[in-house]
Every structure is written in structure tokens, then in C-alpha cells.
């Protein structure tokens, strides 16, 4: 099985690749995990991961600057129905639009805008940075075997914006930070996590291995 982790100049992909290798090994899988900026490799990959850190518009520009990449993503994910995982800004890019610093178009796969977090309690710090639990809104195969809810495992978050999905049926999980924040979205063969599975120890490695064996 081939897994493409898309390199478009955003952030550290080394640790993401290592987390995927480790999760695969622990679950007896032997996928071919590649960090790539080649659109053809992405179009052919059996599973696709879009990471991302930084600002939405910068990431979108970075992705658009890779020749043929957005077309390849649409072909593989929408056309061929290949399992897709967006992480952090990679998840936000699934939205219709991002409103960070400037308004820019996303991939348009999950209807909704990426908007600033505005906690009800003004003393709460932004970014929402650190470990938080997640509340499941729609059961999802990527969360199989993961303890969720207030007493569950923790996920590592670092973000100031979140995806406000237009269709609440596409919100898989939320987290609480002075109000509910979108933690995970998904539909069909695509899912996205606002938290960083590659930094979330037990919860993260389990989610990654679930993704590697996901058959949507």
C-alpha cells in the first residue's frame, strides 16, 4: 500500500512520516510511506495525507504553487475515492474558505469557513495550545478503539482558527475551549483532524493506524 504525505513547503514532515511508519509497524502493516511534492505520485497513491502548519492563506498558496497538486488531490480523493487525512491546516484546507488575515478559497470539500476561535471566557489564551480531550459527535472508523470524552485520551492542539462546518453532520468530533471547537471533520473517504495525531502519543498513533487500515 502506498501512502503519500504531501510536501508543499509547510512545516515538519519528518516527524509525521516517522509517526506513520511507527503506527504501521506496531500494527503489522508495511506501507510504502513517501513524503512527496510530486503531483503524479499523489494521484497514484492509495492513501493521502495533507499536513500543514502556519496561516491558511500561506498554506493554500504553497499548495497551489506545486504544479498540478490541487488537480491531483481532486482526482485521487474526489474522483477515485482514495482515503484522505488532513492534519491541522491540512484539515482546514478542506473547507470552502479561510478567513485568517485574508479571505482565501479552500479545496471546498467540507462546506464552511475557517474562523477565529473566540472563547466565551476572555481569559483563555489563544492559540489553543496543548492537550485536550475530544467529544465524538458522529462515530467514525478513525476513532475506533480510542477512548474519548472528558475521561478519555488527549490530543495535542495548537491553533487559533477552526473549521466552522456548515453541515453539522460532517463534524466528527469537537473539543471544549470556552465553547465547542471543531476537532475533526469528515465525509465519505475523507477526514481531517485539527489536532496533531503525529504529536498525540497513544491517541495519535492509534488514529494513524486506523487510517492506514480504513476502507471507506
Amino acid at each position: 500500500m502506498s501512502v503519500a504525505i504531501i510536501d508543499y513547503g509547510s512545516g515538519n514532515l519528518h516527524s509525521a512520516a516517522k509517526a506513520f511508519e511507527r503506527a504501521a509497524r506496531e500494527h503489522g502493516l508495511a506501507p510504502d510511506i513517501r513524503v512527496t511534492s510530486d503531483a503524479d505520485t499523489v494521484a497514484r497513491a492509495e492513501r493521502i495525507v495533507l499536513p500543514g502548519v502556519g496561516a491558511f492563506a500561506d498554506c493554500k498558496r504553497g499548495l497551489a504553487a506545486v504544479d498540478g497538486m490541487i488537480d491531483a488531490l481532486n482526482e485521487a480523493v474526489i474522483g477515485k475515492g482514495r482515503p484522505f487525512l488532513g492534519i491541522c491546516v491540512g484539515m482546514q484546507l478542506m473547507a470552502s474558505r479561510g478567513l485568517e488575515f485574508e479571505t482565501s478559497e479552500g479545496l471546498g470539500w467540507i462546506a464552511g469557513d475557517v474562523v477565529e476561535i473566540r472563547p466565551s471566557d476572555a481569559t483563555l489564551k489563544i492559540p489553543h495550545m496543548g492537550w485536550n480531550t475530544i467529544d465524538v459527535k458522529q462515530p467514525h472508523p478513525l476513532l475506533a478503539g480510542i477512548e474519548t470524552g472528558p475521561q478519555g485520551l488527549h490530543a495535542y492542539f495548537v491553533h487559533s482558527y477552526h473549521l466552522a462546518a456548515a453541515n453539522l453532520g460532517q463534524v466528527i468530533a469537537t473539543t471544549d475551549y470556552g465553547g465547542a471547537i471543531t476537532a475533526m471533520v469528515g465525509r465519505d473517504n475523507m477526514a481531517g483532524t485539527q489536532f496533531h495525531p503525529e504529536k498525540s502519543q497513544r491517541l495519535g498513533l492509534k488514529l494513524i493506524s486506523n487510517f492506514l487500515s480504513w476502507a471507506p
Binding site: L124, H128, G130, W131, N132, P150, H154, T175, Y177, G178
Partner: peptide, 8 residues
């Protein structure tokens, strides 16, 4: 709120 204090 459920964000946890961090020990580093």
C-alpha cells in the same frame, strides 16, 4: 474548559 496545564 478541558485544556490541560502542561509539564515540560
Amino acid at each position: 474548559m478541558t485544556l490541560k496545564a502542561r509539564v515540560i
